[in-house]
Design a protein around this nucleic acid. Structure first.
Lengths: 251, 251
DNA sequence: AAAAATGTTGCGTATAAAGCAATAATAATG
DNA sequence: CATTATTATTGCTTTATACGCAACATTTTT
């Protein structure tokens, strides 16, 4: 561990949480370090474009570098490139919100989102993380992880309540994961956001490891039992097709 | 300048350019540093999520952290939030590709893009940079910068040819900027991409400084002189409205 | 199976980073 | 508007860390 690099990256994390940016003295107080040390770390981050100084307020904030790195990262994800045509197929067939997520350290991250043309406002956003216990994509990924990893995730994040429908009891939650393994898809009816339901299929990599999930979300009014039953075989098939594009084989 | 932070950030830049990631030995060769130094810098970046190691190939690549930082950055840009309804208005009125860009160190960066429903494939992408000399947004921003800054940008980037229409002669280019200042909008007819034309309006901040631009792009077949004349007053007005939302005043 | 290459680690030394104190710039107060 | 307070920035010395060496572990190539 390189201590000064650790400090610099911690500065980035702190600054990122403050929309209006942070000053030298505030960062020094937060990290219990000398202002001149903070100043020099910031200068180095500024030189590389990772941080910039607001000329008016003198406060330091995130630089545009992350937009570039983020778009380079998204472009480098094969899964996203391979999955795109399938996601567009789902969007055009069902005209609902389509998500593609990856699993990363106990959370899911949205790496693609197609919005359809119906006006459904969801909180999801490319780049953002989401909890696993109350999203269809999260539950379907958890259901295919080794038991010890499931336990680690639940220990780390718990089962916090998001709506009246959120499963917060551990035993019930494990039964739910069993059910999802059996059905092959994850369903979520208003567990994450009121009025929104979702169905998700798992995506496996060439080592047969669960790595991602694809989902369709819609208002519960439209996502009826009949509609979900109609979608189920199609999204399972799409999940399998995407997996095969990534080198997954059935045998 | 903190040397080890500088090295760490340089590693990020190098790794970001290689889709499949880079190994310790390769990075050490590139930077003429010891493998153990590289290894420790990478470990620190991995701990913070800025870099991750591909378990199969052992190579190091960009971590998902940039997706989060990028979306936090976009959310923190007031300009983008304030401009969004106006961009949607333009999109619904003209049904072409709408861009919002900011000026950053001699280049423009796309921070919002609405695609309309017509199928126009453009190379632009949120997060990506674009040259200033051959894009409407770039030219309209340059036209409103102080002369010394214009000279600096041209010295740094030159006027490289992108299409047969790209302006590559300095005198002609300065005349073009004069014309843009007079007209109040930037036009670009196939200077950046063959078959694509664009019209852009400037956006000023509360200190009356040029900071951004908004544009409409379409295939040259649709973006006729008549169409551009129709769009001109509307996009100028939109540019002004967005500027006023950011505290710009006319007097 | 052996050799080569790459990734990882322990340790001592040299270098860089940190903090102090001062200075410069900006903001707040009367 | 002048004075005071606060924050940002800088020169220099001291202290701690980062670096590189050499060796080891692991993986890949022959």
């Amino acid at each position: 561990m390189v201590k000064s690099v650790d400090r610099a990256l911690t500065i980035i994390s702190l600054v990122s949480k403050r929309k209006e940016g942070m000053g030298v003295t505030e960062l020094a107080a937060n990290l219990d370090l000398n202002k001149s040390s903070i100043f020099r770390l910031l200068s180095t981050l500024v030189d590389h474009g990772f941080i910039e100084q607001n000329p008016e307020t003198k406060k330091y904030r995130l630089g545009y570098k992350y937009l570039e790195l983020s778009s380079m990262l998204l472009e480098s994800i094969d899964l996203r490139t391979q999955a795109k045509p399938f996601l567009e197929e789902l969007e055009s067939q069902f005209n609902e919100v389509i998500h593609l997520t990856v699993y990363d350290q106990g959370e899911v991250i949205y790496i693609e989102k197609l919005e359809g043309s119906e006006t459904l406002r969801t909180h999801s956003q490319v780049g953002r993380r989401a909890p696993m216990h109350c999203t269809a994509v999260g539950k379907v990924i958890l259901a295919h992880l080794p038991l010890n990893e499931i336990v680690d995730v639940i220990d780390k994040y718990g089962l916090p309540k998001h709506t009246e429908q959120t499963i917060t009891d551990k035993d019930t939650f494990f039964k739910e994961l069993g059910k999802i393994r059996n059905e092959g898809i994850g369903r979520e009816v208003e567990e994450n956001e009121p009025g929104v339901s979702c169905i998700a299929a798992p995506i496996f990599d060439n080592m047969k490891k669960i790595t991602a999930a694809v989902s369709i979300s819609g208002p519960s009014i439209r996502m009826t039992e009949e509609r979900l039953a109609e979608i189920r075989p199609i999204i399972m098939d799409i999940g399998k097709k995407i997996s095969m594009r990534l080198g997954y084989t059935d045998n």
